[in-house]
Amino acid sequence: MSWETRLRLRHVRAFVEIARAESVSIAAERLNVTQPAVSRSLKELEEMVGVPLFDRIGRGIRLNEAGRIFHAHTSASMLELMRGYDRITKDGGISSRLSVGVLPTAATDLVPRAALTFREELPHVRLHILTGPNWLLFNQLRDQTLDLVVGRMPEKETAAGVTFRQLYIEDVVLVCRPDHPILGSDSPEWHISDHPLIMPPRGAVISQTVERYLTSIGLPEMRGAFETVALPVGRKIVGISDALWFISRGVVADELTAKTIVVVPLASPLLSGAVGISVSRSSPLSVERSVFAECLEKAVDVA
């Protein structure tokens, strides 16, 4: 009997869940079956494909090279099956919800564009979008109140239990009003300390990025007169004062296009970082989450 006639959905489900959990026992709990049943499904699958798919490491289990190749195809197939089922069983009404946490850098352009495309793709799904501080959104992601978070790659201490998928690289910029005196300087870095600073609050994803930059130019103790990543507040303070604001470019993209505020020319790779999608390692497969990720990628390509 050929392998394709022996293959069952239980084999694929067991394999995908073991790969996600890196544990047979945890996979069994998530699938609501016994551990021996999951082990048997994996053994049968490895016999069918003719190669081991996992390396056993101590008490854990991890995909090997063959397993990673097989996983790329099986996880995509599972999602397509789930998507097909959704499309033929939904009655056209709002019947499910996707909860997305959005950090400021993605809130002004990327996520709104993706949301409109997502509505066209899955009109029966209600998109629930939340903004908030970095620590709160990632806590909600880990406890599965949120399905994903869109924004800057989290720092190591925030990233526990989370996988990150990069969409693009974005810089943090120092912005000011168009007629600010610092713009006439050949070396604006030397004059940053002459003006009030608006800094990202402690706990914001870009906070450590800005602190590392200031340390690199000899201002390790520099503190902000104000702390915010909120566009309405920062935009207003910058517009009516000599304040300088460190903020992700995506937050102020429309203002930069309109030239109501401008970028102070700083040359530093320390101010660049990845923006993308963060997902809890313990979250189950989700058609809605997969489709929204595709919509985010499309929005990046269009921008």
Rank of each mutant, 00 (worst) to 15 (best):
D186N: 06
L79T: 05
D109K: 14
R281W: 04
D194R: 15
F292W: 07
E170N: 10
L137Q: 15
I247H: 01
R97P: 05
Y85D: 13
A243D: 10
M48V: 04
L197S: 11
V172W: 00
S95H: 09
R177K: 13
A107L: 10
R8W: 01
E47C: 02
G93F: 10
A160P: 01
E221Q: 15
T34H: 10
V162G: 01
I237F: 07
P154I: 12
I192Y: 07
L231C: 05
V24G: 02
R6K: 15
S241G: 10
L266V: 00
E120R: 15
I192C: 04
L127M: 11
A225Q: 15
S241Y: 10
R40E: 08
V229R: 03
P200E: 01
E46G: 06
V150A: 02
R223E: 02
L197H: 12
S282N: 10
T117V: 07
D143G: 04
V233T: 12
R289L: 08
C176N: 00
L266G: 02
L122K: 04
A274H: 12
L81D: 06
R152I: 04
E65I: 08
G101H: 06
F164C: 08
R56S: 07
S283Y: 11
G93C: 08
V12L: 15
V251Q: 05
N134F: 11
V252K: 05
E121P: 02
C176H: 00
